[in-house]
Amino acid sequence: MPGALAYAEIRDGAVSRASREAAGLARRIAVGVGGEAHVVALGPPGTETAAAQLAGFGADRVYVGESEALALCQPDIAAAAIARLVEAGDYDAVIFAATSQGRDIAPRVGARLGRSVASEVIECRREDGAIVVRRPMYAGKAIATLRFTPGPAVMTIRANVFAPAGEGAAGAVSSLDLEGLEGRVRTAALEQGDRDRLDVSEATTIVSGGRGMQGPEHWLLLEALVEALGDEAALGASRAVVDAGWRPHGEQVGQTGKTVSPNLYFAVGISGAIQHLAGMRTAKVIVAINRDADAPIFGVADYGLVGDVFEVLPALTEAVREARRGA
C-alpha cells in the first residue's frame, strides 16, 4: 500500500513542531490514496518514549531506531537507515522539515535512492497521481513548480507553512534495526547558546530590530515585547545591526541570514531592503514600525505604524500583554 514517510526530530525528549508539520503532510499525502502515514525517529535509548507521541499525532506506524551513537544526530547513519526503510517500503513521499538536520539528511537520502530532492517546499499536491510541489528560488524572488517522476518524492518543507499533525488514533510502534550502519562523521558536541531562547528559524512570532533601534542597549525594549508575545516568540535582526556587532549573526534575517515564515513578524526600525525582505516576506502577518512613512518596509507590511520606536515599543508591549491576558 503506498504511503508517505516523515522524519521526526526529537529534541530534549519531545517531538519538534517542525516534525509534526512533516507528519501532518505525510498524513495528507497518504490519505489521498488510502495509504498509511509513517514516521521515523532516531536517537539514543529512550527515544521511543518521545516518538510514541507521534503515534498519537495520527501516524499509522512509528519506526524508532535507538543507539547510543545517536545521542547527537549522525546524519549519515540517519540517511542510511531512512534510505533502507524507503527501499523496503512503498512510499510516494519522504518528508523532512527544512531544519539543520532535515537539510543535511534529505539530500543524502536522495543520493542513496537515486531520487531528486525538493528543498523548502511551500506547496504540495497530487496531480494525476504525481506529486507536484512549489518551492521558492532566488531568495524567494521566484517560485518554481516541479513534478516528481514516479517513485518516492523526497523533500524538505519550510517551517510554519503546513498544518501540524493533530491528535489522532495511536498507531503501532516498531523498532528499526540499525545493525551494521556506521557514520563517517562523528558529531562530538552540541554547543547551544541560550536554550531558553528560541532560535529565530523556529519561532512562530518574530520581533526583529534594525538600525532604527539606535544601539544594542535598546534591545531590552524588543526583549520585553518578545516576552509579552509568549513562548513561541524570538528575536531577529537586520544585517545592519549584525554587521555593527549589536546582535549575533544567528539572529540575522534575510538573504545572507535566515529565511523565516512566522505567523507574525514585527520589523522594528528596519527600512525593508530587498535582501531583508528575501528572508521574511512569506511571513503570514507583517507589522512595520518605522518613523519614516516612506520606508519600503511599509510596502510589504500588513499593518504599519508610523512612529518613533522608543515611544511606541513600551506602549505596544503593554497592550500586547493586556490583549494576551484577556485571550
Partner: peptide
C-alpha cells in the same frame, strides 16, 4: 497593507 496610524495613539488599533 494599511497604515493603522501614527505614534503611540495608534497602538490600541494595531493590537
Amino acid at each position: 497593507g494599511r497604515i493603522v496610524g501614527e505614534g503611540v495613539d495608534a497602538v490600541p488599533e494595531l493590537v
